[in-house]
Amino acid sequence: MRIHYVPTVLLLGSAVLILLIGAGLLLKGRAVRRTAERFRSRAVAATATVVSLEAKDLSFGAEPDTRYFPVVSFVPDGATEAVEAQTLTDVPSPPPRVGDSIEVAYDPERPDHVDVAVTEGTAEGAGRTYAVLGSLVLLLALGVAAAWLVLLLVVWTH
């Protein structure tokens, strides 16, 4: 059996690089999830007034999915002036109208970090995109390594 060094270095080097990228994506997803959990652990509830709605179209397929992120105004505990901020997550359908009151949760250390209270206590989606992408990239790394193995066992041995 003769090992061809250039394809071996290219394929295995690529597999290692892709593996590192996948691991980085998984670690980023974990960090995002932890950040969301920390926010939830110290969040304070408040009643806010919807100032405006920001519509964002997410289209992963043929049909766009419109999500609404309210811009709200509220007075944090111990403050005298109102804070105006866009929520970190979208509101469930149907979205509130401008002038409506909604319950929010905010970070007392950074009152401009506001979330809709309906989503409070759940961080299930936080970091999910990074985790899915990381998993797919890791599968790609395994595929590249498997391609090298096929070349080694099938092509180069004959």
Rank of each mutant, 00 (worst) to 15 (best):
A82C: 03
S93P: 14
L26I: 12
L149F: 13
S135A: 15
G61T: 05
A55R: 07
Y5W: 15
S59I: 13
E37D: 07
D57N: 09
A36D: 09
P111E: 03
G22D: 07
H158F: 10
V155T: 10
P7L: 06
V91N: 06
V50A: 04
A43T: 03
L17Y: 08
L27I: 05
G24T: 06
E120V: 11
G29E: 04
L17E: 06
V91T: 11
Y130C: 09
G134N: 08
F39K: 00
E109A: 15
L12K: 01
R33Y: 12
L149R: 14
E63H: 12
G78M: 04
V144H: 04
T66A: 03
A79I: 09
R33T: 10
V98G: 11
V154E: 12
F69C: 02
A15M: 07
T66W: 05
G22H: 06
L20I: 12
G127P: 07
I3P: 00
R42F: 12
W156M: 02
S14Y: 09
A31C: 08
R34G: 14
V32G: 01
E103N: 15
T47Q: 13
A55T: 08
A55C: 02
R2I: 13
I102N: 04
S59A: 15
F74A: 00
L136G: 13
V51S: 00
V9L: 11
A82L: 00
G29M: 05
Y5A: 13
L20N: 11
V83Q: 07
G134A: 09
P70R: 02
T49Q: 09
